[in-house]
Design a protein around this nucleic acid. Structure first.
Length: 302
DNA sequence: TAGACGTGGAG
DNA sequence: TCTCCAAGTCT
């Protein structure tokens, strides 16, 4: 029995080393966050929806106000969806507020008012996709799931593949690899803590723009670091157009409604965007989406 | 599966 | 300034 030659290929990264180093790093550097320090299901769920494509610092104040006002799914479900959209404030992607409200209604009607604890039940809720279902099941119910968010994916692709950024969508190979990396049952590091730790490392150290490799617990085994931080090659990563888009127009319209406690006349919306055709199209789409409501008196409101 | 979907801060 | 990016989901 001879061991395979090691010279031709790069040594495989030992998962045990990753678990030990990243777990220890997390013990020392994890941020104190309300939904992390007291990981009850509803707060965890609310935070996860708010954190989709949105930085922690912007979520914090809105989260606190939200939990104060709606401490349970039933409390949120009892109010009109427009109130949820209003309370969402400037977090962006207001349909998330709408979906969170719809999820609260479903939880109240179908789960006795308690956030369900399995991945299957969770992903069936509005606004809850693969990542969020795995995150809630992991963080609020200590279940074992592969949690693949943008942070985890970036950490893995750098450490293990030596590339700067992950692909646009999650591949099967990527998911299989992440599954292999998950600590075994009964391991010192729980799977849910591993998920939180890798996310945190990506959020604080292995960031997209300016990674802090000097502070990274696994820099010495990271292939991207060893390779001298090669930049992303291949097709340019898609940027998000903004100025003049329907998204910007919809945002302006919604802002007007958000800032008014009462329904507003059409004239108020007309002042929010110059291009009349685009404005009408966006207002129609907001009405279709249920984000905006036309009152009996012909005014507009959330 | 690519594109739509908000917002604001960092580099 | 302007581009890029932030704990994605849905169609």
């Amino acid at each position: 029995m001879t061991s395979p030659p090691r010279s031709a290929l790069v040594d495989p990264v030992d998962p045990e080393v990753l678990h030990e180093r990243i777990g220890a790093w997390f013990d020392d550097h994890a941020r104190s966050l309300p939904w992390r320090d007291d990981p009850r299901p509803w707060p965890v769920m609310v935070s996860e929806l708010m954190l989709q494509q949105t930085p922690v610092v912007r979520v914090l104040p809105v989260f606190e106000a939200w939990m104060e006002r709606w401490p349970t799914p039933a409390a949120l479900a009892a109010e009109p969806v427009g109130e949820a959209v209003r309370a969402w404030g400037r977090l962006g992607y207001p349909r998330r507020a709408q979906r969170l409200h719809a999820a609260a209604v479903a939880i109240t009607a179908e789960h006795g008012g308690e956030v369900p604890g399995t991945y299957e039940e969770l992903i069936a809720l509005p606004g809850v996709g693969d990542y969020t279902a795995a995150a809630i099941a992991s963080f609020a119910f200590s279940r074992r799931h592969v949690v693949l968010d943008t942070n985890v994916r970036r950490v893995f692709v750098r450490v293990l593949e030596g590339r700067q950024y992950p692909h646009t969508s999650v591949t099967k190979a990527e998911r299989d690899l992440a599954t292999t990396l998950m600590p075994g049952e009964g391991a010192d590091l729980d799977a849910h803590r591993w998920a939180a730790a890798t996310m945190e490392l990506g959020a604080l150290v292995c960031t997209a723009r300016s990674p802090q490799c000097a502070a990274c617990p696994v820099a010495d085994v990271c292939r991207w670091h060893q390779a001298g931080h090669p930049e992303h090659d291949g097709p340019a990563r898609k940027g998000q157009a903004w100025a003049g888009t329907d998204r910007q127009c919809r945002g302006r319209l919604l802002a007007v409604l958000r800032e008014s406690a009462d329904p507003v006349p059409k004239a108020d919306l007309d002042r929010a965007w110059d291009d009349a055709a685009q404005r009408e199209r966006c207002l129609d789409s907001l009405l279709d989406d249920g984000l905006v409501t036309l009152t009996d008196s012909g005014q507009f409101t959330l």
